[in-house]
Design a protein around this nucleic acid. Sequence first.
DNA 1: GATGGAATGTTATAATGTAACAATTATTTC
DNA 2: GAAATAATTGTTACATTATAACATTCCATC
Lengths: 165, 165
Amino acid sequence: MGKPMISLFPSERHDHSACVDAALAQARDVCREQGGRLTPQRQQILELVWQEHKPVGAYALLERLREAGIKAAPPTVYRALEFLLGHGLIHRIESLNAYTGCTAPGTPHHGQFLVCSQCQRVAELDEPSISGELDRSARQFGFEIERQTVEICGLCPRCRGNHHD
Amino acid sequence: MGKPMISLFPSERHDHSACVDAALAQARDVCREQGGRLTPQRQQILELVWQEHKPVGAYALLERLREAGIKAAPPTVYRALEFLLGHGLIHRIESLNAYTGCTAPGTPHHGQFLVCSQCQRVAELDEPSISGELDRSARQFGFEIERQTVEICGLCPRCRGNHHD
DNA sequence: GATGGAATGTTATAATGTAACAATTATTTC
DNA sequence: GAAATAATTGTTACATTATAACATTCCATC
């Protein structure tokens, strides 16, 4: 009974290197189209953001950079993040002060995020029905939307199953 | 043509002291019902949050407290905010790291916020149609919602009219 | 008026983010 | 190719937001 349940939360043993490769390839395409320079450093930071399907904080990225032997200061990370945000290659999760790879870069979309409070993984949605309702409500009150922040915190399918915290 | 436009953004010269008084009265009711202690300090900070229909940062509140002659440190403010958040008397606007008075304390609701990027004022919605769509989408993906963060940034009706920045 | 729990005071520090200017690297123009 | 220009990165310092830890005070109740 019920519709097939599409999994936005990839399994534990999916081929994650494929995710990363795809993200990097898409990023190169997007930058070529938009005339942005995906420098090695920016690419490396994008790759670090993609290490997991979890949002990463700026200082965690800084830590990872240093572990990779690169001595960097906060502005290095924040500048790369600014570039990546500007080209729609990552999103910022406001409720976590953290950053996550965009799964549909290049295509204009509002991100809507399902954030698991247990495993921290994030799934990105772009449901027209949600955006539509937001648009409708905003219009009703004479409000002109510039940007939507929709972050839904809760339990992902897998963590709902594992009720042994 | 079109529906009457309900104004969620009060006019510049509405009787704001009435807003504050109502908020404080509601807060007292809520605390009585829930068994929370609305101490003078907590009440004062709630009052400061309500000084405008704009979200206020914790350190701005600290500043206002000091202007009121009270020498306080950050934990004083954060503890009061924690109490007020816990009793649903204020909301935190994630995208601004700021706090705003709740317009419907006591009644369970998800806050949905229209935040004006020009005048910074905020209107709180609780549209079942939005929550409903979020619920529906989450359920579709097997996700169990604990908390919704919906913050819509854009131009409020008045600022849309004033195109002379 | 003793006592136990909540609230507040106080100091220090953690976590997140940015300003400002110097140095370098890439790109264009001559 | 060399000079000029623009973009990127390095570096230092600092701003902003938030919390940990422990001492003290307040307050309801016994």
